Structures are given as structure tokens and as C-alpha cells.
Simulated scan of single mutants.
Amino acid sequence: MEYTHGGDIYSLNTPVLDFSANQNPLGMPPAVAEAARAAVAEADRYPDSRCTALRRAISALDGVPEEYITCGNGAADLLFRLCGALKPEWAVDAAPTFSEYEQAVTAAGGRVFRCPLDPEAEFRLDAFYVAALAGADVAFLCNPNNPTGRLVEPGVLDVILRYCRNARITLVVDECFLKLSDQPGPGLAPKLADYPNLVLLRAFTKSYGIPGLRLGYCLTSNADLTEAIARAGQPWSVSNVAQAAGVAACGCPDWPEKAMAEVVRPQRARLTAELRSLGLTVWESQANYILFRAPGRTDLKERLVERGVLIRSCANYHGLRADYYRIAVRPEAENDVLLRALGEVL
């Protein structure tokens, strides 16, 4: 099976600086690493299948009732469980966007309509998406979108929320990158009580730099849906190590914003300017990653790997071509290496 995501350092024969995975550039908080190490001593016991302490910590962090929360082996695990529970016949997402929405729907026997986003309009989500929702069972939004780094404008988001509630469409909003965006805040969590058709996907993976531990969660006020999602997966989907790390991460609420202030915002501006100076087409990002195009250069990923740098080819994103690429915003010294390598191959 072909691997189609970032972070594939395992198929390479040489160490690389990984710009293909969009996680916190500060890495894992020390308190999280310490909690994970300590939890290994208790790995001779089954983990808490209800994630009691973790759900309590998430409840305090996100300001939502514990009964709204379902934890899983990453947000992707919950996405597949959600689609397995709903079994949608017809779903809508954007193009380009995260590919697992479509894979989860098709795995559950459904079909997906992809609403195209226009690169000439900065990949903004607009009224065409709302028009495409007619007849859908489920709608997916990634906010900020992956790989474009664009946030959905609040007015558009409100229109979509109301339309989906009135049309009884389950609206799934992926907020996994929200804390590493220019509009972190509470996201749509305050809307959950008024919109029982709303499901939020969130993860510790990106914000707290722990992709190897696989830890995500979803939020919904729909008690029947929460129960259905739980039934659609195995009872021990979150290890005790991941649960301990998650509780510790909830105790470090400022870690994502620290990364945004110290690394992402200044380095994103620098990278955007430098990439453009190299003749690349760069879209303004509101997240911790950047989408760019190297017109006609479809081998850029391979050329950079030869120089010890791994970037994300966007060739498999619907709506993009093989000369589109995505990079994570990394610390200054790593960005120096990336820019030097780009200058050598372009």
C-alpha cells in the first residue's frame, strides 16, 4: 500500500530534516515527555478504556462537558469510526484537502463530492461549497485547511453551520491545526450545545509534537453519536502512555502559542519571502505550514532528499498537480538548510 502522507522518513536510506510533517516546531513539551516515560512502568496493565483522567483534562482545557468527548488513536482513527457509525451515502469535502475524509467515507461504502477551491482566489472556501451541500449526509471542513493553510472565514462558517443544522447534515470540522494557526481560541466548541449535528476533530499530534503516540479526540453534544463512535472502535484504542502524555499536555496550554510566537510567525514570513525570491509561487498561510508551487518542477522532493531535506509532494491532493509542495515551518537553523538546498536545485 502506497504511503501518501508526510513524515515518511522510514523509507529513506539517509537521515533527513523533515519538513513534510506539520507538527509543533518546538517538539514535545518536557512535561509530556516525562509523563510518557513514567507511564511505561504501568504498561503491564490494560489502559483505561474510558480515558477517564484524559477526558477530565480535555474538558477543563476546552471548556466542554466530559460527555462530549471521545478519545482515539489519533484523529484519523476517530474519523474512520465516525464514518463507520454514520455510514453516509453522500458526503462533501473540498479539493484540495486532507485525503482521509474521502478514504473514511469510501471505506464505509459512501461517495464524496469534491468542491474545488480556486488557487487564483487563495483557495478560499466560498458560497459554492454551501450550494454543493444539497442532498449530502455528511460535510467535512478542515480549519485551517490542509495543505493550503487557509482558515475558513467566520461569516462563511456561520452560514455552513446553519445550513447543515437545518438540512440535518452532520458537519465534521477538523480543528487539528487550529492551535497552530493565526486564530487559535476555542474554535467551534462554544457552538456544540446549539448544534447537535456538529462534530469537531482535534489532536495532540500537531500542537504538542507527539505524532508517534497517536492521540486525538472528537467533540459532539449528540449523545447517540458519541455512543455510536465508541461502539465503532475497539475499547483500548488509546494506550496508557498516550493517555498520560495527553493529561500532561493539557497542563501545558500555552505550548502551541509559544511555538507560534517564537518560531512560526516570524519564520513563516521569512520563508514566504525567501521562497518567492527563488521564483516560486507561494500562497499566504495562516497556519504552521506553507503551500507553494515550483512550475514545471515535479522532482523537487527527490532532489531535496539527496541534500538531506524531506518536503511534502502534493501530487496526490485532488485539485493540485505534481509541481505543488508543502513545507512545515521549522526553527531558523533548519530553515537555513532548506533554503540553501532549494537554492542549489532550482
Rank of each mutant, 00 (worst) to 15 (best):
Thr106Gln: 08
Ala60Ile: 05
Asp8Tyr: 06
Arg162Phe: 00
Pro331Ala: 10
Ala287Ile: 11
Glu89Gly: 14
Asp93Trp: 02
Leu192Ile: 02
Thr226Trp: 00
Glu332Arg: 06
Gly27Val: 13
Met260Tyr: 11
Arg265Ile: 12
Val138Trp: 07
Ala41Glu: 15
Pro144Ser: 08
Leu161Gly: 06
Leu304Phe: 04
Ala36Asp: 12
Asp323His: 12
Leu225Ala: 01
Gly185Ile: 01
Arg340Lys: 13
Leu200Cys: 09
Ala287Leu: 11
Ser11Ala: 14
Gly251Val: 00
Ala193Glu: 13
Tyr68Cys: 07
Glu89Trp: 02
Asn145Ala: 10
Asp62Arg: 14
Asp174Lys: 08
Leu338His: 08
Ala136Asn: 05
Thr70Gln: 09
Leu17Asn: 12
Cys252Tyr: 00
Gly6Pro: 05
Leu280Asn: 08
Val247Leu: 00
Gln243Glu: 05
Phe113Glu: 07
Pro29Ile: 13
Tyr208Phe: 15
Ala41His: 08
Gly149Tyr: 01
Ala230Leu: 11
Leu82Trp: 05
Glu153Lys: 10
Asp224Trp: 09
Ala36Phe: 07
Ala39His: 07
Asp44Ala: 14
Gly27Ser: 12
Ala232Lys: 01
Pro47Ala: 11
His5Trp: 13
Ala21Asp: 08
Tyr208Ser: 01
Pro154Asn: 11
Tyr163Glu: 10
Arg111Asn: 12
Asp137Leu: 06
Leu342Arg: 06
Val264Ala: 06
Arg214Phe: 12
Val264Leu: 08
Ala242Lys: 03
Asn288Arg: 13
Ile229Ala: 01
Arg168Gly: 06
His5Ile: 06
Ser313Asn: 11
Leu161Trp: 02
Pro256Thr: 07
Ser207Asn: 10
Ile290Ser: 11
Asp8His: 06
Val264Lys: 02
Ala60Thr: 09
Arg111Tyr: 12
Thr205Leu: 04
Gly135Asp: 07
Trp255Gln: 01
Asp299Lys: 01
Ala95Glu: 08
Thr4Met: 11
Leu171Ser: 02
Leu133Gln: 02
Glu2Leu: 13
Val247Asn: 00
Gly296Gln: 10
Gly7Pro: 12
Lys258Arg: 15
Gly212Phe: 03
Val305Glu: 14
Ser237Asp: 06
Glu2Ser: 12
Ala203Leu: 01
Leu188Asn: 01
Asn24Asp: 13
Pro331Arg: 13
Cys71Leu: 01
Ser99Val: 05
Ile9Cys: 10
Ala167Cys: 10
Thr272Lys: 04
Pro119Leu: 04
Leu82His: 05
Glu227Thr: 08
Gly63Asp: 08
Pro266Thr: 13
Asn288Ala: 15
Tyr317Leu: 09
Trp255Phe: 04
Pro253Trp: 02
Arg56Ala: 15
Pro147Asp: 08
Val16Cys: 11
Leu125Gln: 01
Ala85Met: 04
Leu213Lys: 02
Ile9Tyr: 04
Cys252Phe: 00
Val345His: 07
Ser285Arg: 09
Gly72Arg: 07
Asp126Cys: 03
Ala136Ile: 08
Arg340Asn: 14
Ala136Met: 11
Phe113Gly: 00
Ala85Leu: 02
Ser285Glu: 09
Arg231Met: 03
Val92Gly: 05
Asn335Pro: 00
Val159Met: 10
